[in-house]
Nucleic acid binder design. Structure first.
Lengths: 252, 252
DNA sequence: CGCGACCTTGAGTAGGCTCAATGCCGGTGG
DNA sequence: CCACCGGCATTGAGCCTACTCAAGGTCGCG
C-alpha cells in the first residue's frame, strides 16, 4: 500500500498527460510543467479497495489521481463511518498529510487507480520556487473546503431525498468535468448504496427506500456500477439549489 | 459592512500584537513580521450581528480576527441554516473569497469584533515573495478543512447528545488555545441554543432537551453568554473521541 | 452449488421534528 | 415606575422521518 516499489515505470510524461487537455484544467507554462514533471517521482497503481491513506498514520506522499476514483472518510471507534468526499481524476490528494503530522482521515480506492506520486519534501521546493503553483495548491485546498461546506449543509439541513438528489447531481458534475460521463447523463462511478448512505449520514435501508422513490419516479436509473439521470430538472428541484458552474482549475 | 472607511486608525503594530505572544502561534522571523505589517492595511471594528461576508457577494478583503468571534454558515433558499464553523482570534478568514470569484458562505459576527484587514491583491505578493507564509496560508486552509471533516463526521454519524458533547469540547479547546477561557473550564462564547442547533443539524427544541440532559446530569452549566464544563471526562466519553491536541500554528 | 456482495422489503420502534404555549429577563418609551 | 416587547430558554403533545432487526432475492464467481 503506497509502497514506492509498486510504482509503475511506464510514466506518462506530464506534458503529454491526457488529463491536461481537458478544458477544466488551466494551461500551464512550460516552466510549471517542467517543475511538475520533476516533482513527480513515479506512478502508483492500486486495486479497488486498497487504502491510499489510513487515519492516524503519517504519509510521505502526495498524489494526483490519473484514473479511477476513491473516497475519503472518517470513522468513529464503534465503526460508524462518514464519507467526506470523493476523489476523481485530476484531484490532488494527501495535502493534509503533508502539512500536518498525521492523517486525520482515510482514503480507499473505489476502483483500480493510477496515481501520480509526489514526495512530501518536494512540496516545500514547490513553495520556494513557484509562487503560481503554490497559489494553485492553496486554491485547491480552498476548493475542497467549499465542497465540504456544501456536503455539510446537505447532511445537516436537507431531507433524505434532497440529500440524495444533491449528491447524485454533485457526482455527475464532477465526473462530467473530467470527461468521464459515459453517454450523456450516464455517471459511471462504482459506488454502492452503502457508500451513499455513509456519505449522506443515512442508514442503508432508508437510503435504499429513498433511492427507490427516485427510481420509481423515473428521475434516475440505478445500476451497480453506474447511474443515469433521467430527469435532471426534477433532480435539481429536489436538491433545491443551483449546480455551481464548473470552474477552471489547476492540475498538479 | 466591511467598509474601509470604518477602519480604525489606532493600529496595533504587528510586532506588538498581543495575540502573537500566545504559544499556539509559531514565532515569525523579522522579515515575515515586516511583510505582514505591510500586508495589513488597517483594522476594522464591527458590532455583534454584522455580516462580514455574504454568500453570493465577492470580497476584496481578507481578515485576521484580533478579538471577538463569528460564525460561518450557508443557507438553503427556504431559510434552513447550517453553521459550518466558528471564527476566533487568530483565525484567518475570507481566503475562499480571495481565491474564488464569489463567496459561497456568509460570516456573521457573534460579538463585537476587531479585525486585521488585508487586500486581496496583497495575497498574491505574499505568494510571490514569501514561500514560508504561502505555506502557512495553505496550512491554515488544510487545518480548517480538518475541522470541517470532524464537523461532518459529527453531523452525519453522531447522536444528538454525542454531537452536543463534541461541539462543547471543540469550542472549549479552540477558545482555550487563544487563552480566552475565563475561569478554568469556563467557555465564554456568546452563542445561543439556536446556534448550536444550526451547527449540529438539529432542531432548536431537540437541542434544548439534549442540553437540558447535560445540565441535569451536571456535565455542564449553561448561561447565556458562557458555559462551564463540570465533568470533562463524561463529556469526552459522550463525544466518543480524543480531543486532538493543540498544534502550533501560524498567525498571519 | 454455495458463497459473498449488494439490493429489497416488511414490521416495529424511536429519535428527533413541529406546533404551541409559557416563563424569564433586560431594554425602552410613555 | 410600569407596561410592553423582543430575544432566549423551556416544556408538553403528537407526529413522522429515519432507524433497527430480520428476511429474502439476485447475480456473479470460484
Amino acid at each position: 500500500m503506497a509502497d514506492p516499489k509498486d510504482a509503475a515505470r511506464r510514466q506518462v510524461p506530464c506534458e503529454r498527460c491526457p488529463l491536461r487537455e481537458k478544458k477544466v484544467f488551466r494551461p500551464f507554462t512550460a516552466d510549471e510543467l517542467a517543475f511538475v514533471k520533476n516533482f513527480k517521482t513515479g506512478e502508483l497503481t492500486v486495486e479497488a479497495g486498497s487504502m491510499l491513506f489510513l487515519e492516524g498514520a503519517s504519509s510521505a506522499h502526495l498524489y494526483t489521481v490519473l484514473s479511477g476514483s476513491a473516497f475519503r472518510y472518517k470513522s468513529l471507534p464503534d465503526g460508524r463511518r462518514q464519507i467526506l468526499n470523493y476523489c476523481f481524476p485530476g484531484d490532488f490528494i494527501g495535502l493534509q498529510g503533508s502539512v500536518m503530522e498525521e492523517m486525520q482521515h482515510s482514503i480507499e480506492a473505489l476502483s483500480d487507480m493510477v496515481l501520480c506520486v509526489f514526495q512530501r519534501e518536494g512540496l516545500w521546493r514547490l513553495f520556494e520556487t513557484h509562487a503560481g503553483l503554490s497559489f494553485d495548491v492553496t486554491w485547491l485546498a480552498a476548493r475542497s473546503e467549499q465542497i465540504l461546506d456544501q456536503q455539510l449543509l446537505s447532511v445537516g439541513r436537507r431531507s433524505a431525498i434532497e440529500r440524495c438528489a444533491h449528491l447524485l447531481l454533485h457526482l455527475a458534475q464532477r465526473v462530467d468535468e473530467v470527461g468521464l460521463m459515459g453517454a450523456p447523463n450516464k455517471v459511471q462511478v462504482p459506488i454502492t448504496q452503502q457508500h451513499i448512505a455513509d456519505t449522506l449520514g443515512l442508514s442503508l435501508v432508508h437510503t435504499n427506500r429513498t433511492m427507490a422513490r427516485l427510481i420509481r419516479d423515473r428521475v434516475i436509473r440505478w445500476k451497480e456500477q453506474e447511474y443515469e439521470i433521467l430527469n435532471r430538472k426534477r433532480l435539481t428541484e429536489l436538491a433545491g439549489e443551483e449546480a455551481s458552474c464548473p470552474v477552471v482549475r489547476p492540475l498538479i
